[in-house]
Structure formats: C-alpha cells, structure tokens
Simulated scan of single mutants.
Amino acid sequence: MEVRSGANPQDFKNYTTERIREDFLIQDLFVSGEIKLVYSQIDRIITGAACPVAPLTLEAGAELRAAYFLERREMGIINIGPKGTVSVDGQPYELDSRDGLYIGKGAKEIVFTSADPQAPAKFYFNSAPAHQTYPTRKILLSETAAQHLGSLNESNERTIHKYIHPDGVKSCQLVMGMTILEPGNMWNTMPCHTHDRRMEVYLYFNIPDDAVVFHLMGEPGETRHVVMRNEQAVISPSWSIHSGVGTKNYTFIWGMVGENQVFSDMDAVPMSQLK
C-alpha cells in the first residue's frame, strides 16, 4: 500500500508540476492480476483498484494495523470493466459494468474475481474509516439517483448518478457516485466550488488515447492543473477546487469523505475570484 502525506495550501503554491503529480495523481491503477492501494492521510481515504485474472483477496496490510481491511472501515466499489464478482464473507455479488457495491464495516473477507480472466473486471473503490456498520448493498446503475445538469451551450451537459448517499444506500461517511458527460461536452464542476468539510477523489475514465483531461485544483486564487489520462485518479484536499475540462467528453467517479454527507454543502466560487 502506497501512503501519501497531507498537503498545506500555503506550501502547495510552490509545488512544481512534478511535485503536484507525485502527491496527488494516482497512475497505473488497473494492473492485471493485482490490487493497487493508495492511502491518503487527507481524511484517511484509501483509493484502490482490483483487476483480477485469478481471485484476488483484499488484505489489510501493515499500514492499517488491523486484523482485516474493513475492521474499522467501509468501502464503495464501482466496476468500470467487464463483468466480475465481489464476494463478501462468502456472499457473491455479481457486478456488470457500472454496477456498484457498498460494503459496511466489519466484513472480513473480500475477494475479487472476473467472469472471464481474458477480459478482467476493473473494480474501482474508495474506503474510509467508519464508526458504525451499515448493510452491504449492491447498486445497479438504473437504481441510482440520477440528476441531469448543464447544457451543450455551456459545454457541461451531464448526468450525475449518486450511488452511496444519505437518501439512498447509506454509509457512515463515504459518499460516492459517477458523472457521465454527454458527447460534445467537456467541462465538469464549473462554475467550481470547495467544501472545507469534505475532501474528494476523482477517477477519470472513458478518455480516448488521443485525449486528455486538464484537472484544475488549488485554492481559487492560486489554481494549478494536472494533465490526466484514461483511468487515472486525483486526490483533492478540502481547500482545493476540483474541476476539469477534456479535449473530448469522458466519465468520472467521485468519492467524498469528511465531516458530513450533505451533497449540496458546497462553497461556490464566483468566476471573478478564479486566478
């Protein structure tokens, strides 16, 4: 498990491009036959992925000092690849592409498998500390709370699918979902915002090989960017904006942890304040 330190906004102003990428960009998430884990000391979120050729079992690792991965944690999973199965203490949950799964605190054995090892599933997940156990639930894309926003005129027509949230599949602190941009639309989360009470991780995918996403971060008056490619994630501290524009349309998964779960608890940033 890779461990990333927290970040001070005053220090961030002086980071080079390479330092920003080292601290916040997560590359090479989906490696066939492996589980990748990145532990951020920003709100203790773990971002990970499993791409099973043979069954893969999720282990706690020395970094957690726990008997098993979810001893004191919860997690949300969304499959962005071919069909696969997540077994939770022997109970199998088959996930098609874009199906999700919430697993509550206390589940001891998590095993990832693919329906076809020649076309492995791509299980993406976020995990956060938890103080209460909520039921494990499978989440179909068709069952998510969907909100259509934006317009082609503003280049941000998109549908937000909420998988794990207070009015749906409940969790201790994790909120998770997916945003799908319509063809011809490139912008996400603009006008932008911050939320001091929560941090966020974005996973960008469905980006063509000849395209990139410019992910914007930093304080509103001190913005920086990270060039993102397909199936890469980026960590966003609570003091940072988290917005992006692609050279083509794309999809992204967002996961938030922190003080509350209120989706609309955002501090809007007027366009005039951006620098």
Results as ranks from 00 to 15, higher is better:
5 S>H: 14
10 Q>I: 07
13 K>C: 02
14 N>Q: 04
15 Y>T: 00
15 Y>D: 07
17 T>P: 08
20 I>N: 03
20 I>L: 15
21 R>N: 11
26 I>T: 07
30 F>W: 12
32 S>M: 03
37 L>P: 00
38 V>W: 06
42 I>F: 02
43 D>G: 00
44 R>N: 14
46 I>R: 07
48 G>I: 04
56 L>Y: 08
57 T>A: 10
71 E>C: 12
71 E>D: 08
72 R>T: 11
72 R>G: 15
78 I>G: 14
80 I>K: 03
82 P>Q: 15
84 G>P: 10
86 V>T: 07
88 V>M: 06
88 V>E: 00
97 S>G: 09
105 K>A: 13
111 V>H: 03
118 Q>C: 09
121 A>M: 01
123 F>Y: 09
124 Y>M: 03
129 P>W: 00
135 P>C: 05
149 L>H: 08
153 N>I: 08
156 N>M: 05
157 E>N: 06
161 H>N: 09
162 K>C: 03
162 K>V: 01
171 S>Y: 06
176 M>V: 07
187 W>T: 03
195 H>F: 02
198 R>K: 11
198 R>V: 09
201 V>L: 04
201 V>R: 02
205 F>V: 10
206 N>G: 11
207 I>D: 07
208 P>F: 02
212 V>Y: 14
214 F>I: 02
222 E>T: 10
224 R>S: 12
224 R>A: 03
225 H>C: 14
227 V>N: 07
227 V>A: 14
232 Q>W: 02
232 Q>V: 06
236 S>R: 00
237 P>H: 01
240 S>F: 09
242 H>M: 06
242 H>R: 14
247 T>V: 14
247 T>S: 13
250 Y>C: 13
255 G>F: 05
259 E>F: 06
262 V>T: 09
265 D>L: 02
268 A>P: 14
269 V>A: 03
269 V>W: 02
275 K>V: 05
